[in-house]
Simulated scan of single mutants.
Amino acid sequence: MKKKIMLGIIALSGLSMMTSCNHSSVSNDVLVIGMECNYQPFNWTTSKNTEDTLPIDKTNEFADGYDIAIAKYLSQDLKKEVVIKRLEWGSLIPSLNNDEINMILAGMTDTHERRESIDFTDPYLTSDLAFLIKTSDVDESLGTKEKPMSYDELLNLFDGKSLVCQSNVVGDDFIETYFVHNKQNKAIRHSPAQATYPLAANDVLGGISFAMPAELPVVEAMTNLNKNELRVLYCDYKGFLSSEDQNGLSVSIGVKKGNSELKEELNASLAKLSAEERSSMMAKAATRSSESAL
């Protein structure tokens, strides 16, 4: 999931419930959400006004993505107004602790280091690791959902080839940690990271790179770029990812330390949303991302 930096502007949602955010502190009566609006497929900016988007304050642009879908769901379920602030990644936690926002909904992973300064809800998305590959490059019997590839099999398959991912996400780190610096001395290369998943997927489609690691809903959505030529390669990632890196495949909502009231409300609302519904929401967001990015 996401871990570094992007852009910043203040944005206002329009769920049929609207509010301003001119004050310097916020209460739990309003969901004041910090995100980047520049990290596909979790959140990004678009010029299209659709049922999946929210308007960005004082611009003619709109925000879309999985985080926006979750924000809409929480607003409707909790019957609370929503304000979205678009902030740089590095400003999210300081803004939360300074009471400029009361939630971080930005594809953020719950880590021990971050828990020292903020609290987290239960995950609002937990996924599996998979790879996007060209159908013609790998036998259809390999890397299936029923028989995922082991780490050794992946290393043998990727030997002499290059892997690519979107920049500033854990999948890009996984390439370096588990494949480039593998202990079997396989010659696996790391292609320059792309700005978005769709652009990385296009590298795979064009034969520039052999495979792209990402969360399963993202990989499934990227196959929509060309269903005849791209497919999912499943892997037994629990056999080689560390527990910390497995945790990196989950994202949670950040709240200010001690704000147990909001944390409990959010957890109760998220508990009503099934894993299937969450995966569907992510797949739809990733599909819209692929359609808008190329």
Rank of each mutant, 00 (worst) to 15 (best):
H181D: 15
S191H: 11
N182Q: 12
P192L: 14
K186I: 05
I188W: 03
L199I: 13
D173I: 06
H181C: 11
I175F: 04
D203V: 08
R189K: 11
A201H: 11
V204Y: 07
N185D: 12
A200M: 11
D172V: 07
L199N: 10
S162F: 03
V204W: 00
F179G: 11
Y197K: 07
V180P: 05
V164M: 06
Y178T: 10
Y178H: 08
P198T: 04
L163W: 00
D172P: 00
T196A: 14
Y178M: 07
N182L: 07
V170F: 05
H181S: 08
E176K: 14
N202S: 01
V170C: 01
A200H: 07
D173E: 14
Q194W: 03
A200G: 12
D173G: 14
E176I: 11
A193C: 10
A195C: 07
I188F: 08
E176V: 14
V180H: 05
A193H: 15
A193V: 13
K183S: 12
S162C: 02
Q194P: 04
V180A: 07
A187F: 07
A195I: 15
V169W: 04
G207C: 01
V204Q: 03
Q166C: 00
A187E: 12
L199R: 10
Q194A: 11
Y197H: 09
N202V: 07
D172T: 10
A193T: 06
C165T: 05
A201P: 02
C165K: 06
I188Q: 09
H190L: 09
D172Y: 08
S162N: 06
V170H: 09
P198Y: 01
Q184C: 02
N185K: 15
H181E: 14
Y197P: 03
N202G: 03
S162M: 00
S167P: 00
V164S: 07
K183C: 12
E176S: 13
D203K: 03
V204F: 02
G206S: 15
K186L: 06
V164A: 00
T196L: 13
G206L: 11
P198A: 02
H181Y: 15
H190D: 11
N182G: 02
N182V: 10
I188G: 02
V204H: 09
E176M: 05
F174H: 05
I208L: 09
V164H: 03
G207L: 07
T177Q: 13
Q166F: 01
V204G: 02
V164C: 14
S167Q: 09
L199E: 08
A195D: 15
H190P: 02
G207S: 01
P192Q: 05
V170E: 10
Q184E: 15
A193L: 10
A201F: 07
T196H: 13
T196N: 14
K186E: 09
D173F: 12
E176Q: 15
L205V: 13
V164E: 00
L163A: 05
K186M: 10
Q194C: 01
A187P: 03
Y178E: 05
D173K: 15
H181G: 08
Y197N: 02
S191Y: 06
D173N: 13
I175E: 08
D172L: 04
V180W: 03
F179I: 00
N185F: 06
A193G: 15
I208M: 04
F174N: 09
